[in-house]
Amino acid sequence: MTQHLGNAFHYDLDAEGYESLEDSRTTIHTAAHHIGMVGGVNVGVWEAEPGLIGGLTADEIFVVLEGRAEVTFEDTKERIEIGPGDIVRLNAGQRNTWRTLERLRKVSVWSDSGAQQPSS
């Protein structure tokens, strides 16, 4: 049986916020919607407004639906530019920064084993 779970562009997202790495008095607005679990992994939608945030990654794969960002991984100094259609793999525990250039929305699949919320 097939179940339509919704439309990733139209989910109402729960507001979150990350402290800006450029100005600690500023909060970068982010939002998320946890769709559910499939085969022991989480599926959700995440969105971020422009700004610079950072944190630790979960064990995650995501697809960018819209927007653009630059993600820099502190341990390797690798910097990737992501945009619509890009598929990205993150490893649990990687410290990174996200510079969102245009409001970004992505669909993520992640494991709780890293005990991190998806994204930054």
Rank of each mutant, 00 (worst) to 15 (best):
H4V: 13
L5R: 14
G6M: 08
G6K: 01
A8C: 07
F9L: 15
D12L: 12
D12Y: 05
L13P: 02
D14Q: 14
D14Y: 09
A15H: 06
A15Y: 04
E19G: 12
S20I: 07
S20Y: 04
L21I: 03
D23E: 09
R25E: 14
T26M: 10
H29S: 07
A31C: 01
A31V: 00
A32Y: 10
H33D: 01
V38T: 13
G39A: 09
G40R: 05
V41T: 13
V41L: 11
V43E: 10
V45P: 03
W46K: 10
P50M: 06
G51W: 01
G51A: 04
L52C: 05
I53E: 06
T57R: 08
D59K: 12
D59C: 09
F62H: 08
F62I: 02
V64Y: 04
V64L: 02
E66M: 08
E66T: 13
G67Q: 01
R68M: 11
A69S: 13
V71Q: 10
F73L: 14
E74V: 10
E74F: 15
D75H: 15
D75N: 14
T76I: 07
T76N: 10
T76P: 02
K77T: 13
E78N: 11
I80N: 10
E81R: 15
D86R: 07
D86V: 09
L90G: 09
L90S: 06
A92N: 08
Q94M: 09
R95V: 09
R95N: 11
R95S: 11
L101I: 12
R103C: 00
L104D: 08
L104I: 11
R105Q: 05
S108K: 05
W110M: 03
W110G: 02
S113Y: 09
G114K: 07
G114Q: 04
G114P: 03
Q116V: 08
S119K: 04
S120T: 06
S120C: 10
S120I: 02
